[in-house]
Amino acid sequence: MHDDDFSFEDDLESLSSAEDFLDYFEVEYTPSVVHVNRLHILQRFHDYLARAADQLPEAEEPRRMAYKTLLERAYLDFVKSDALTEKVFKVFKQQNGGGFVPLSQLAK
């Protein structure tokens, strides 16, 4: 999907869905896994990129390969596990029962 008229950064700007990213980086995936976890995969990918920002190569091709590796890792996190276990989003990171209000308390 790379076009010599566009830079890697331009290519990334045109991607919007998890499937777009996985296809662009040629990561093999199971559609049902992505369907259930697409936002989690993208958030985890973003988190991995943020952590690696200082170590990412400047040159385009090595940078592209680093992105592919991190995306593959993010995807595989959800092949081996699930969103509740991985706790990508804040709502899953909150303590168990932290927001629970018993039904009997609502009537008071």
Rank of each mutant, 00 (worst) to 15 (best):
V88D: 02
Q55S: 10
K68L: 08
A83L: 11
S14L: 07
E61K: 15
L84C: 06
L70I: 02
K93F: 03
F89M: 13
Q105D: 08
A18N: 05
Q95R: 13
E60R: 04
F92I: 02
T85E: 15
E19K: 08
A18V: 09
S81G: 04
L56F: 00
S81K: 07
G97F: 06
G99Q: 08
E61S: 10
P57H: 03
D11R: 04
L12M: 11
H2S: 10
Q105I: 02
G98I: 05
K108L: 09
N37Y: 04
F6Y: 14
D4N: 15
S32P: 01
A59C: 05
F45S: 03
L15F: 11
K87Y: 12
L42M: 14
Q55V: 00
Y48E: 11
F45V: 05
D77A: 14
T69P: 00
V88T: 15
A83I: 09
G99F: 07
H2A: 09
E72I: 12
H40F: 07
V27M: 01
R38C: 04
V88F: 02
E13F: 12
I41E: 00
T85I: 15
L70E: 01
S16G: 10
S7D: 12
E19S: 07
V79S: 09
P31T: 03
D20M: 10
